[in-house]
């Protein structure tokens, strides 16, 4: 291997690593706030990318129908609960978020012919379709089990993952798609060629990480999420409801997932089931961080990205084996440094 190849591989590794970093951050966030190990994160990556691809191909993505359907289902369930509890005040909120919002999004998608819109509008529209699925998913699958053990929530996650992968196949078919790059520009740094999309991915990841840091450090809602992660009872006593925190963290995770998918879709061909492996690599990074530390998760993600790109050069058939085997030494190290008798939640 010469320097140029090494540089090329590093560049690849860092680009992928920055996507894994975003996903790892979302996974750590969701776990801290809700104790959910968010396996379906990867499906949001695929849904984001493929929804955008469908727009560009002039098709109506199936995710739109999923959004409408999930909205109606959530509205039905919550209306029944609100009526039983004698709290008609909640109905307005339900109508707004679960019915009106999906309807408006559907109206835009069906009315605007997204294929003719500028890329930025297509991206915004794709996010508008996919991101609301996050909180709806929390409401339908997880909220009824909010008090259950991590293990039960994990099994639910796996079930959700399967259902979403199946739906992904139904919506988008088995063929993969690529989207138009954000930028066709190319830059030469010495012998290394850097293309515009690479810079987009890196730049967007950095902006997103800074935005997240500001959200958690400066805004009251961000602090409320941290508070829930630190002390659930304490947060409830401040009026921060567990379900609100859950929906908010799922919204963020869905947004990060969908955006990650949109960012890499011009570089990699995305299939309906690509997201799972991408998300799992985010997980390897999150596990490196013990599902707790954000900076460690980001560093771990870059490590995973580099390891992946270099092993694809040396032993491409065993790329996945090498990346997933990485967690063995990580677990060994964690196991040797942890000294507590596990007591069930």
């Amino acid at each position: 291997m010469d320097l140029q190849i090494a540089l090329l591989l590093s560049q690849d590794g860092i680009v992928n690593g920055s996507i894994y970093a975003l996903l790892a951050l979302a996974l750590v966030l969701v776990f801290a706030v809700t104790r959910v190990i968010f396996i379906p994160q990867g499906e949001f990556v695929a849904y984001g990318a493929l929804t955008l691809a469908a727009f560009q191909a002039g098709k109506t993505p199936g995710t739109l129908w999923l959004l409408l359907g999930a909205g109606v289902l959530v509205a039905l369930i919550d209306t029944v609960i609100a009526v039983r509890a004698g709290a008609p005040g909640r109905l307005k909120r339900i109508a707004l978020w679960d019915l009106a919002l999906p309807a408006v999004v559907a109206g835009l998608v069906l009315g605007l012919q997204p294929a003719t819109l500028p890329l930025a509008a297509q991206v915004a529209l794709a996010l508008a379709v996919v991101v609301p699925l996050g909180p709806m998913l929390y409401r339908l699958a997880y909220q009824p089990l909010a008090e259950a053990s991590v293990l039960v929530l994990l099994i639910v996650s796996v079930a959700v993952h399967l259902a979403l992968v199946g739906l992904g196949l139904l919506f988008f078919g088995a063929e993969g798609s690529r989207t138009t790059p954000f930028s066709e520009a190319q830059f030469n740094l010495g012998t290394l060629t850097v293309n515009g999309q690479t810079l987009w991915v890196l730049g967007a990841s950095c902006v997103l990480i800074v935005a997240l840091a500001l959200f958690f450090g400066r805004t009251l809602y961000g602090k409320a999420l941290r508070a829930t992660a630190i002390n659930r009872v304490g947060a409830r006593l401040m009026g921060i409801s567990t379900s609100m925190a859950g929906k908010l963290s799922f919204t963020l995770a869905a947004g990060i997932g969908a955006l990650s998918g949109i960012l890499i879709a011009p570089i990699t061909t995305i299939y309906y089931d690509t997201g799972f492996l991408v998300g799992l690599k985010g997980f390897v990074a999150a596990i490196i961080a013990g599902l707790a530390s954000y900076p460690l998760a980001a560093a771990g993600a870059i490590l995973v990205g580099l390891l992946e790109s270099f092993s694809s050069f040396w032993a491409s058939a065993f790329k996945e084996v090498i990346v997933f085997t990485l967690i063995i030494p990580v677990l060994l190290w964690r196991s040797l440094t942890s000294h507590h008798v596990e007591e069930e939640e």
């Binding site: 009251l220 602090k223 508070a227 630190i230 002390n231 009872v233 304490g234 006593l237 921060i240």
Partner: peptide, 22 residues
């Protein structure tokens, strides 16, 4: 509450701010 239930890894100021969340 009896156990105080503070947000230990947050500043005093943030703890107070969260009191006004609702």
């Amino acid at each position: 509450p009896e156990k105080r239930e503070l947000f230990g890894e947050m500043s005093v100021e943030d703890n107070l701010l969260l009191g006004a969340f609702q």
